[in-house]
């Protein structure tokens, strides 16, 4: 595997792991479900995504 490819893989993994890619996935999904309708801007989307965690706490283990 070339270093470039490896770097790409690491970047893909970290983006997926941290949820940074969630917005891209949302855009794609939105385009398929509601073609033509304006999608949420990133700021709004991230705000909703984080605020949801307020009502749905995730346990962290010891």
């Amino acid at each position: 595997m070339s270093p470039r490819r490896l770097l790409g893989l690491v970047r893909w993994y970290l983006r997926e792991l941290t949820g940074e890619s969630a917005y891209d996935r949302y855009l794609e999904r939105h385009r398929l479900a509601h073609p033509g309708a304006p999608a949420l801007p990133r700021r709004e989307f991230e705000r909703m995504r984080t605020d949801r965690a307020d009502a749905h706490p995730r346990t962290r283990c010891c």
């Binding site: 970290l14 983006r15 941290t18 949820g19 940074e20 990133r42 989307f45 991230e46 705000r47 984080t50």
Partner: peptide, 14 residues
């Protein structure tokens, strides 16, 4: 930073 300046850019923030 994540909330107001660079929403969603978790990697650079981290």
């Amino acid at each position: 930073y994540l909330r107001t300046i660079r929403p969603g850019r978790v990697l650079e923030t981290s």
